[in-house]
């Protein structure tokens, strides 16, 4: 397989290129749009990217809450002192520690989730060009090695200022 990167000065040209790629039979699974600042979703006719980041804090929060609940319940049951006829488990003060545990678990798992979903550390990041952070739009494409020339021509016809490729 080979990777091709086309660099576009104008966003409109990049949008034209993604349309041309789709007409040539490439799907959203094959190409990726790289930008230095965020563009509204669908600006380039690309599919909406999916992620599972929201699952991570949810799991972290459940784990943190459970740990805090276990800690507070276990310590109170270990010293079952009844005062003033009140129940052994004092819920209101337990809430503070359960809140702390929930938050800490959610934060830690969110950070983990960001690392996981962003593939950090990404040792095999695809093609990239520093001009993307200067405002250029990059379109990277994975294709068969014998299709490199055709893809490069397609990108250039759409308005790419520069096209690079690499084989893996």
């Amino acid at each position: 397989m080979a990777h091709v990167l086309g660099l576009f000065r104008e966003a409109e040209a990049a949008a034209v290129a993604t349309e041309a790629l789709q007409q040539a039979g490439y799907t959203n699974e094959n190409f990726e749009v790289l930008t230095g600042s965020p563009y509204p979703e669908g600006s380039f006719g690309e599919r909406v990217a999916r992620h599972r980041l929201y699952v991570f804090p949810f799991i972290g929060a459940i784990l943190g809450f459970s740990t805090a609940l276990l800690l507070t319940v276990a310590t109170q049951l270990a010293f079952p002192l009844v005062s003033g006829g009140k129940p052994i488990l004092g819920i209101p003060p337990m809430i503070i520690i359960m809140y702390e545990g929930t938050m800490l678990g959610a934060i830690l798992f969110t950070v983990l989730g960001i690392f996981f979903e962003s593939r950090i550390p990404n040792m095999r990041a695809g093609l990239y060009d520093p001009r993307i952070t200067e405002g250029y739009i990059g379109i990277t494409l994975t294709c068969a090695e014998d299709r490199i020339n055709a893809v490069e021509q397609l990108l250039r016809r759409a308005g790419a200022e520069d096209v690079r490729s690499a084989q893996r």
Binding site: V48, I114, I120
Partner: peptide
């Protein structure tokens, strides 16, 4: 920057992460 490239997925995760951590920061 950790090999940030600016792919659509990276931006999406970035936006969601900033929102989540921001919410937790407020609560904390």
């Amino acid at each position: 920057a950790g090999k940030w490239r600016g792919s659509r997925k990276e931006w999406k995760v970035h936006r969601a992460g900033v929102g989540l951590l921001g919410g937790f920061f407020f609560l904390l």
